[in-house]
């Protein structure tokens, strides 16, 4: 202290002190404001849970039970986590339109705030996978398309087809097309295993590998037509149909012209 006080008349003392004071004020303020933001978040979280509960009681409880404990026709939602809710409700699969074998992707019934509220409510019932917003952000930077393709072909293509177009499962169920899936939804599907889909835990497909897969799927969604119309990217069936109908059709048409007498 004594050594420090020797400089109190130094010509830089004033400015240094000023900078120090400003820094301290800033630091204090930021801590204080962080506290208030935290408080606000806690506040809004409880509010969101309440709102989510209301939505749940109105829209979901008839099948999933008043306390999300599940029923005869719908599974328990305790412990499924916010990720599952965000995926199912955010893609419009829940609430289901009818009692068909599988919930189809459609226009979401709730807006993003309501989905978040529902997710917060279900997450409050028991711990479960959270919405992977933060992890997914950097898929473009951290993912590897080629690596993702390799992982996709080993783990996903058997149901979702080589280009992510979806495919048939048994008894009328199907693996949906991935052409509209967002990065967050893809990540959520992998960790929650919606409907027929199995779960892919973080040790089996690591978070960074999941980003690879997401990056590959995004590339597949934007895959340009390198060789002409893609015809659904479902393999040789459409090719055969086009060969017969357009190819042979045109040739037969021309052959008819060839064999008609000119007038």
């Amino acid at each position: 202290m004594k050594r420090l006080s020797r400089y109190r008349r130094h010509r830089f003392a004033g400015p240094v002190l000023l900078v120090f004071a400003l820094f301290m004020i800033g630091a204090t303020f930021s801590v204080a404001s962080a506290n208030t933001r935290l408080a606000a978040r806690v506040m809004s979280r409880t509010a969101a849970i309440d709102e989510g509960r209301q939505i749940f009681l109105k829209g979901c409880s008839s099948c999933h039970g008043l306390n999300a404990e599940g029923g005869k026709i719908a599974p328990s939602l305790i412990g499924v986590g916010a990720a599952a809710v965000d995926f199912q409700v955010g893609t419009g699969r829940m609430p289901m339109a009818d009692m068909s074998v599988q919930a189809a992707r459609k226009k979401p019934a709730y807006n993003p705030d309501q989905v978040a509220a529902l997710a917060a409510y279900v997450a409050s019932l028991a711990p479960g996978p959270a919405i992977p917003d933060q992890q997914v952000v950097y898929y473009e930077r951290d993912g590897s398309t080629a690596q993702g393709g390799e992982l996709f072909r080993t783990n996903c293509a058997m149901c979702h087809n080589f280009a992510g177009q979806g495919g048939a499962l048994s008894r009328g169920k199907y693996a949906p097309s991935l052409m509209k899936a967002t990065p967050t939804q893809i990540y959520e599907a992998m960790i929650t295993g919606p409907q027929s889909m199995p779960k892919f835990g973080d040790k089996i497909i690591t978070p960074s590998e999941k980003l690879d897969i997401i990056k590959w799927i995004k590339a597949a969604q934007n895959e340009p037509s390198l060789g002409g119309a893609s015809m659904g990217r479902v393999g040789p069936v459409t090719e055969g149909l086009l060969g017969w109908i357009l190819g042979l059709g045109l040739l037969v048409g021309i052959a008819v012209w060839l064999a008609t007498k000119a007038r």
Binding site: E150, L151, T154, N155, G193, P198, K199, F200, G201, K203, I204, I205, T206, E209
Partner: peptide, 21 residues
Amino acid sequence: VTDPSGRPIKPSDLEVGAVAQ
């Protein structure tokens, strides 16, 4: 070990409903 990454697997790595190639 996992395909294609080649990591060994512990039982705890698989939740119920999970698969691994």
